Simulated assay, not measured.
Amino acid sequence: MCYDLAFSTSIESVFDYLPELKDMGQLDMSFEPTYHKVAQAYPKWPVVVNDNGTLKLMKFEWGVIPNYMKTPEEIKKGRKWMVNARSEKVLDTKAYWSRIRRNRCLVPATGFFEHREIPGWKNKVPYYIRLKNRDIFFIAGLYAYSHLPNPETGELPGTFTVLTRDANDVMSRIHNGGDNAGRMPLILPVEYEQEWLRPDLSDEGIRRILNYSLPSDEMAYWTVNSVRKAKPDDEGVIERVEYADLPAL
């Protein structure tokens, strides 16, 4: 799936790819660069939404709080499963994600992490993955406002989920184990980014975008130290680490 993201550049870099945000006076958002955030900590993250025809850069919490979770106890138990959504479920009328498919967002990132199983090895090997030709990229997402107010502010927080799809060749070899093996985030090409946000996008248009698979040769990747151990949030998180006797992908 996609539980670990990086956004290691300034928030202003989003405006280079979506200059309309700058034109709409979106320059005052504060967001500190981060080399690693884990989904199940429900961090606040920048997302781009289309609000009545206007693109807006917002800070939402990672992890949708669906309206069928009625109590804090239900949220604590079930929210961890709402940080990702399978793209195959977005148009499935029996799935919750279909109900909020009109609430589409872009989730900017500079990279993400995934783990590879090696036969005979005790621990999985972590990889950092980014795009070769872009400093940042956008993952397709869905969002919803929580129906339960923040107990401190009384506000209804915005929440989002990251869409995943079947992995391409490289990612299927990296993300090769566990219950959700063979998945990767739905990274969009430039031509689909703003289209994903169009309010009038039909279900057929949604399906076309959901079927997009980023080619393997557009990805750069290398092995890193574990991101499951606490460490300073700096560039050391994504430094290349060599593992002795690691089989080639």
Rank of each mutant, 00 (worst) to 15 (best):
D4C: 09
L5I: 15
A6S: 12
F7K: 01
S8K: 08
T9N: 08
T9Y: 09
I11A: 12
S13M: 15
Y17L: 13
K22I: 04
K22C: 09
D28Q: 11
D28K: 05
E32H: 15
T34Y: 07
V38R: 14
Q40N: 13
Q40T: 11
Y42W: 09
W45F: 10
P46M: 01
V48K: 05
V48H: 05
V48I: 15
N50M: 14
D51W: 15
D51Y: 15
L55R: 06
L55Y: 14
K56P: 03
K59F: 03
E61A: 02
I65E: 14
Y68E: 07
Y68V: 00
E73D: 05
E74G: 03
I75K: 01
I75N: 07
K76T: 10
K76L: 13
K80E: 14
V83T: 15
E88Y: 02
V90A: 13
T93L: 00
K94A: 13
R99N: 01
R99W: 01
R102I: 02
R102V: 01
R104W: 04
C105A: 02
P108H: 06
P108I: 03
G111S: 11
F113H: 11
H115D: 08
E117G: 05
W121L: 08
W121R: 13
K124T: 08
K124P: 01
V125R: 08
Y127K: 00
R130E: 13
R130I: 00
R130H: 06
L131A: 14
N133G: 09
D135Q: 12
I136Q: 08
I136S: 10
F137V: 07
I139Y: 09
I139C: 03
L142V: 06
Y143L: 07
A144Q: 10
S146I: 12
S146W: 14
P151H: 03
E152V: 09
E152Q: 03
T153E: 04
T159N: 08
T159S: 14
T161Q: 05
T161L: 09
L163F: 10
L163N: 02
R165H: 07
D169Q: 12
V170P: 00
S172Q: 15
R173M: 13
H175G: 07
N176Y: 05
N176M: 10
G177Y: 02
G178M: 12
G178L: 09
N180P: 00
A181K: 14
R183C: 10
P189L: 14
P189D: 06
P189E: 04
E191C: 04
E191R: 09
E195S: 09
W196E: 12
W196N: 10
P199R: 05
D200C: 06
D200N: 15
L201H: 04
L201P: 04
S202T: 12
I206Y: 01
I209L: 02
N211W: 01
Y212R: 00
S213Y: 01
S213M: 12
S213P: 01
L214D: 08
P215T: 10
E218K: 13
N225Y: 03
R228M: 06
K229A: 10
A230C: 02
K231H: 03
P232V: 06
D233C: 05
D233M: 04
E235L: 12
V237E: 07
R240A: 15
V241N: 07
V241M: 13
Y243D: 11
P247D: 11
A248C: 01
